[in-house]
């Protein structure tokens, strides 16, 4: 299985065969949420912040 290294802790993150640009991965070692920003080669960046919203 292909993998990529976490940009925070350098731990190995396994990749699904059909990994997608824009997909959010969670590092199994440090818990960081990372966004796949390109595919060839796979590059990661910190995932965008989660927005806060009022209501239900």
């Amino acid at each position: 299985m292909a993998s990529v290294n976490c940009i925070e802790c350098e731990g190995e993150i396994p990749l699904e065969e059909d990994v997608m640009a824009g997909e959010i991965l969670q590092c199994p070692h440090c818990g960081s949420e990372l966004e796949v920003v390109s595919l060839d080669p796979v590059k990661l960046d910190l995932a965008p912040e989660v927005q806060e919203d009022w209501g239900e």
Binding site: E16, M20, G22, I24, P48, Q51, E52, W54, E56
Partner: peptide, 24 residues
């Protein structure tokens, strides 16, 4: 979430992830 991501990307949308102050 991956299933939603695929759907958003097919529609050329960049999804917004949210948390809410209310309950559900």
């Amino acid at each position: 979430v991956r299933a939603f991501m695929k759907s958003f990307l097919q529609s050329q949308l960049r999804p917004i992830f949210k948390v809410k102050t209310g309950t559900s």
